[in-house]
Computed example of a mutant assay.
Amino acid sequence: MGPCNGTLSPQPSTPQFSLGVSVLLALLMVLLALVTVLGNVLVILAFILDRNLRHRSNYFFLNLAISDFAVGAFCIPLYIPYALTGIWHFGRGICKLWLLMDYLMCSASVFNIVIISYDRFLSVTKAVSYRAQQGMMSSPVVKMVAIWILAFLLYSPAVLLWEYMTGCSMVEEGQCYAEFFNNWYFLLCASTLEFFVPLISVTYFNVSIFYNIQRRQRRGSIQYCESPGSSSVSWRFCFLLRRGPSLSELEDSASSSMRTKKESLVTESSSPSRVNSVTPENDFSVCARARSKLHHDKKIAKSLAVIVCVFAICWAPYTLLMIIRGACQGKCVHPILYQITFWLLWINSSLNPFLYPLCHDKFRMAFMKILCPKKFAILRSNSC
């Protein structure tokens, strides 16, 4: 496919650096690639070696780690010489493959973040139905496959077929960027699906979880269970208030508890040797579990808040700048500013292994088992 004569779009300009700056940047880029690869390899190994991690929701972390690993192992290394010299040295075939992989992996990473947030949203706001489906392994597998299909359909057809649809190539020799690089109509539509919709979705999930937790805290603020010596009615109310009951449930529970208490008093009077009612202790355990669930959900909410903030910080500058740059044909955006926002996307892939799995105790223990087996053995023996 030949070039478009007289209609070449301005190439993505690459800033020129001195030798010292180039060496420093090269070291930082290589370091970023290593951190991205090693961090995501650790997540994958932990999932393979530790059976305790093979929980339905953790499969999405595995999917995220695979996409981010490909970014560090393939996308970043090939781009380093291009970023420093401004010349693509690997030919058009490898350029197409690099573009395909870069757009695919970054899009898959975003969609995995959305599905992780959605899964956490369900586990907090719809806990009963979520637990009832724990054994259905087909559900996460279908979602994982769907993520890769959607990520492929978003950019890959345009990367592969754009020049054939236009009849010529707009990319100069020695350069490597997508044919639609300066088509802001396409960039706006694709960015809406890749960034704006996921950001709104993740924010909605996060706000819903916080609202759910606040509502449960308000309902539980009426403390009917101050001490294990309280009546069984009080303990039953405590449990129901924490899970958000209806008024009829409260009334039924109260009447049932009163009947139980009267029956136990009759039994106690006829059999003095019997132990007093154990209902308060049982209800105390129920309340303790409710408090534990609420504490666990708070940790999930905090981790999702981190997801929203980091995702927005890493993706918003590039997305907005890419649309602006396409609209003005690259004439209104400084090359260094564009490069900084471009690298922020890949920094997100290096941060993901630390932001998500490390928020969970099971992943931390699995990492310790791999990296510090002696310390893990000591902790395990102490716990036993």
Rank of each mutant, 00 (worst) to 15 (best):
W184S: 08
Y185W: 11
Y185C: 05
Y185A: 06
Y185G: 07
F186Q: 00
F186I: 10
F186C: 01
F186S: 11
F186A: 00
F186T: 09
L187Y: 06
L187H: 09
L187C: 14
L187D: 06
L187S: 10
L187A: 13
L188V: 06
L188A: 14
L188D: 01
L188K: 06
C189H: 07
C189P: 00
C189V: 15
C189S: 13
S191H: 04
S191M: 10
S191N: 15
S191I: 12
S191P: 01
S191V: 10
S191R: 02
S191C: 05
S191L: 04
T192S: 10
T192N: 06
T192W: 00
T192C: 10
L193S: 15
L193P: 06
L193V: 12
E194C: 06
E194N: 07
E194V: 14
F195R: 04
F195M: 04
F195L: 10
F196R: 02
F196M: 08
F196D: 03
F196Q: 00
V197N: 01
V197S: 01
V197W: 03
V197K: 02
V197M: 00
V197T: 02
V197L: 07
P198F: 07
L199H: 11
L199N: 09
L199E: 12
L199K: 08
I200A: 10
I200G: 11
I200E: 08
S201K: 05
S201Q: 13
S201A: 07
V202L: 11
V202K: 01
V202G: 01
V202C: 05
V202P: 05
T203E: 00
T203L: 03
T203R: 01
T203I: 13
Y204C: 13
Y204E: 02
Y204A: 14
F205Q: 11
F205L: 12
F205D: 12
F205R: 07
F205T: 09
F205P: 00
N206D: 03
N206T: 14
N206Q: 13
N206A: 01
N206H: 08
V207I: 15
V207K: 09
V207D: 05
V207T: 12
V207E: 04
V207C: 09
S208F: 06
S208D: 09
S208G: 05
S208P: 04
S208R: 13
S208H: 12
I209D: 00
I209M: 11
F210T: 07
F210N: 09
Y211H: 14
Y211A: 15
Y211S: 15
Y211C: 15
Y211P: 09
Y211I: 12
Y211D: 15
Y211G: 07
N212C: 15
N212R: 09
I213M: 06
I213F: 08
Q214L: 10
Q214A: 05
Q214I: 11
R215W: 05
R215C: 02
R215I: 04
R215T: 14
R215H: 12
R216M: 03
R216Q: 09
R216V: 10
Q217N: 12
R218T: 13
R218N: 06
R219P: 01
R219V: 04
R219W: 00
R219H: 01
